[in-house]
């Protein structure tokens, strides 16, 4: 556990040192701020004090931002050879992967925490459904976790950050939107399966404030799968043949 935290600390520090963290937080705030409060926004018109608009915007901004954060995590180590240094230290491949996952997740938590003023502002305007807001944040966090996990896996496949970025977007796009399209075009079991695989299905029920174990299992299993696959990619050098 201690080793994981050492890695997380280093990763997080390097995000802040290299300005990626600040850029990401600022751009995220600007984009979600503009679309929530100013441009094409319905927040003042619907007569309801809630943050659905913000959650709807973040659903898209995070989809594009997360691959940009995760793309360097392992690809850069592969490129510069520091992976050799890291994996000959007293840590396991699993600890490396989890450490990096936690660093990205923490960065996301910080970014989301910076949007709390939105929540406070809306709460000033009227009665907010606190459950729905909590659920919305929780949903964003779980969705981010899933895309971070996919992003780290993509990053473990290559030593090129751009490839890692595009690959993460490509895989993410299926869950984000493509499965949803496919489900509307098909019926029966296939339709259900596609519907189940789509992130939107699970994200929407969470952002209404309904916390269902099925949704938790969905996000949890994809996070775990991404981490296990990344670890497998790291351990590949260690196979006996």
């Amino acid at each position: 556990m201690k080793s994981i935290w050492v890695i997380t600390k280093r990763e997080l520090a390097s995000y802040f040192d290299s300005l990626i963290a600040y850029l990401m937080i600022i751009i995220f705030l600007i984009l979600s701020g503009i679309f929530t409060w100013l441009y094409g926004s319905t927040i003042f018109l619907i007569g309801q004090a809630d943050l659905q608009v913000f959650f709807g915007i973040s659903y898209w901004t995070l989809f594009f931002f997360i691959p940009a954060i995760t793309m360097r995590s392992l690809a850069e180590e592969n490129r510069s050879g520091t992976i050799e240094l890291l994996s000959t230290k007293a840590v396991s491949d699993w600890q490396i992967v989890v450490g990096k996952f936690l660093a990205c997740t923490l960065l996301l938590v910080i970014a989301l925490a910076c949007t709390l003023p939105y929540y406070i502002s809306v709460a000033q305007l009227g009665d907010v459904d606190h459950g729905a807001v909590m659920g919305g944040y929780f949903g964003l966090l779980l969705m981010s976790g899933m895309y971070i996990s996919i992003g780290i896996f993509s990053s473990s496949l290559t030593s090129n950050q751009i490839v890692a970025f595009l690959l993460a977007l490509f895989i993410g796009a299926f869950f984000h939107i493509l499965f949803q399209f496919m489900s509307s075009g098909s019926t029966g079991i296939v339709g259900h399966a596609m519907d189940y695989l789509s992130v939107r299905t699970h994200y929407e029920s969470l952002s209404r404030g309904v916390i269902d174990t099925r949704d938790l299992v969905y996000f949890g299993s994809f996070i775990l799968a991404g981490l296990v696959l990344s670890q497998t990619m790291l351990s590949k050098r260690n196979w006996h043949n």
Partner: peptide, 21 residues
């Protein structure tokens, strides 16, 4: 491996380092 890695100090061939630190 975990036990052993603690007891070994290793300088790899082209000395990869985190250059931003």
């Amino acid at each position: 491996p975990e036990e052993i890695k603690k007891k070994i100090g290793y300088l790899p061939e082209n000395n990869p380092l985190y250059t931003d630190m």
